[in-house]
Simulated scan of single mutants.
Amino acid sequence: MTDVPALKPERPFFSSGPTAKFPGWSAANLKTEALGRSHRSAIGKARLKYAIDLTRELLGVPDDYLVGIMPGSDTGALECAMWTMLGARPATVAAWESFGNVWIQDAVKQLKLKDLTVLDADYGDIPDLASIPQGNDVVFTWNGTTSGARIPDTDWLETGRDGITINDATSAVFAQEMDWAKLDATTFSWQKVMGSEAQHGMLILSPKAVARIESYDPEWPLPKLFRVKKGDKLNRGIFVGETINTPSMLATEDYILALEWAKSIGGRKALFDRADANAKILTDWIEATPWLRNMVADPAKRTNTGVCFVFQGEYYDSLSPEDQAAVPKTIAKMLEERGVGYDFNGYRDAPPSLRVWCGGTVEAEDITRLLPWIEWAYAEIQK
C-alpha cells in the first residue's frame, strides 16, 4: 500500500506549453507604460526592440543574423519560413512527433512541393538524418515537443551546405545550445521554454536565409502575415520591432520580464543547468520505476524539457487498449483535483503517456515532490 505523500509541489505547473512562469513571477512586476499605446509609438517600438535585443543576447545569436517577432506563435514563424523559402530547390521534411508531422502536411498538401522527401519515425525515435542530401533544403524539429526525442547533435548538417535549414526549436531554445552556424531559419514561441504568454513567435534568420528570401519568389500566394519583403528586399523593420501585425504589448512585457529573470540568474547556461538537473531527477526516477519507461529508448536522444514516459508491467499489460489509454488521463486528473500537478497528461496524438515539463522555469523540488504522488495515484487505480 502506498501512503498519501506528505508534501505537494509549491508550484504544480508542469504543462509543456504554456509552461510554468519563472520562480517569483508576479503580474505586479510587469511594466505598463507601453500598454494602451500604439505599437508604432516610440515607446512601443522600443519595448519590442528590447525584447528582440534581449533574445539575441541570451541566445548568443551571431551579430549578422536577424531576430524578429512574428504573429501566430511558433507555427506562424515556422510556416512563414516554409512559405517564403521552400520550393527553390529539393527539400526534405523530417518529423518524429505531432508538430513535425504538421510541417510534413504543409509541404505535401499546402505547398505541394514537387521535389520533396519525407523522413519520419515513430514516437521516441528519430529518422536517419544523415541520409539527407546536403543540397536539399531541410525542415526539422530540434526537440520533439510531444515525444521527448531530440537530435543528439548536428553532425548530419555540413557547415556551408548548399541547402537551407529551417529549425523548429520551440521546445529547445533556452534549454539546449543552438548550433547557429548550421541554422538558417530558427523559430520558437514565447510560451514554451520561458513560460511567457502565447501568440507571438520568433524568427531568426541567417545571411543565407536573407539571401534566399531576397532572390526567390515562390509560385504560391503569400498571406499578408507571411509577406516579409518590400519589393525585392527583406523588410528589415520587422527585425527591429516593426511587426507585421499588431502585437500584444502586455504579452511583450511578460516575455521581457522572463528574459530579464533569465539574465539575472546567469543567462542561458543557468537555464541549461536547471533543465538538465530537473530532467535528471525525472529520468532517474523513471529508470528506477519498473512499471514505467522513457518514451525515448536512446539516452542520447532524450530531451531535458518535455520528458515523456509510458506505462508497462503485468498490471498495465493486462488491461484493454481502452483501459490502458485511460491510465495516464486518470492519474493526471487525480493529481489536478488535489492541486498536486496540472496539465501533464501526454499529448493527445502521442501514445498514452505522461509528459512532465522540466525546463528552467520549473523548480527541482517541485519535480521531486510530484513523483511520489504519481506512484500513489497509480497504486490507487489498481485497487
Rank of each mutant, 00 (worst) to 15 (best):
G313F: 03
I281M: 02
F140T: 11
G24E: 12
K192N: 04
E219T: 15
A130Y: 13
T165F: 07
R212Q: 15
K112T: 03
D53T: 05
F22E: 02
G135K: 15
G60Y: 06
M334H: 05
T19R: 13
I265T: 03
I126D: 06
P223Q: 13
A107W: 06
R227D: 11
E253I: 07
G68W: 03
I132M: 12
F99V: 10
D217K: 15
V310H: 02
D74I: 07
G100R: 03
K269H: 09
D125P: 01
Q134V: 13
P9S: 00
V61C: 05
S98V: 11
L58E: 01
D64C: 09
G17E: 08
D184W: 13
T92W: 11
G231D: 14
W25M: 09
L282T: 03
E365C: 01
I213T: 05
T289W: 05
M70Y: 09
M70I: 01
G160T: 13
T187R: 06
T361R: 01
N29W: 08
T165P: 04
L48R: 03
I374D: 01
L205D: 06
G44E: 06
L48M: 08
K229V: 11
P328I: 12
G163M: 10
E197V: 00
M178C: 05
D273R: 09
T165A: 15
P71Y: 05
T187M: 09
R355V: 12
I69T: 00
G267Y: 02
D323P: 01
H39F: 09
D63V: 08
L370G: 06
L319S: 07
A95R: 03
T303N: 02
I367D: 02
L335C: 05
A364N: 04
Y315E: 10
L205T: 03
K263R: 09
S353F: 07
W142F: 11
P352W: 06
A46I: 01
W220A: 14
T305Q: 02
I52R: 00
N29G: 04
N235K: 03
R150C: 11
E314W: 00
A34C: 10
D137Y: 09
Q199H: 13
I164G: 08
T303R: 04
G87Y: 10
K269S: 07
L157Y: 12
R338N: 14
T187W: 05
T159Y: 14
T154S: 11
F140I: 14
D284F: 07
D284R: 06
P71S: 14
Y216F: 15
G72W: 08
V4D: 02
